[in-house]
Amino acid sequence: MLEARLEQAELLKKVVDAIKDLVQDCNFDCNDSGVALQAMDNSHVALVSMMLKSEAFSPFRCDRNIALGINLSSLTKVLRCAQNNDILTVKAEDAPDVVNLMFESSDSDRLSEYDIKLMDIDQEHLGIPETEYAATVTMPSPEFQRICRDLSALSESVSIECTKEGVKFACNGDIGSGAVTLRSHSDVENPDQNIKIDLTEPVALTFSLKYLSNFCKASGLAKSVNICLSNEVPLLVEYGLAANSYLRFYLAPKIGD
């Protein structure tokens, strides 16, 4: 059986909020290392990969592999019943029909319990190799969100160009064009504001801003975001979570003009 307790329901609420507009029905794959999720959007252009390691829970118990097929809009309805600071316990039997979510208030005696019916989801799973990216940009997540929002007003797509000079987000639209260039920046007082560019070779790729803006819904989960690029491979946008856990988004590049 599965029994996993999170100190704060907020983590799962934010994760589900960040991915529910991209993917609808997902398997939460549970085993003794934690809870993982991989799902592609309907158009097979973007992929969500989440890993919540067992260390993120206390306690965590999962005796055998269990796939919890859950509709994210149903999960959202139930998670709305939890306060951010509630303790969240997820329970399921070995061959479950339902998953049980229990919310306990940390400062009162309220205890809420909900069951969500599970679905059989036959999900395609992609093998994503460990990749050495040509460029990795680490920047404040709100800054990335703002750039995507600002450029979305002008265009549907953005080119991201990394050189030793910095990273340039540029777009071209009907009303005109725009570009934001960031250089490496180190702020000792506010390390959250740091911008780091690791570059082994220059990269230039074009992506849909609609998808990037969607990924930015995860901005509340981490103060900084890693944007990993290599020519002619999908972009990786990674939000690091506590206990070596993560929420990653992959996006296929646009090719041809």
Partner: peptide, 14 residues
């Protein structure tokens, strides 16, 4: 207009 690629062109199904 650039064409958005399918992810399965880059990664194989497992």
């Amino acid at each position: 207009t650039p064409i958005q690629n399918d992810l399965s062109e880059f990664y194989t199904m497992v």
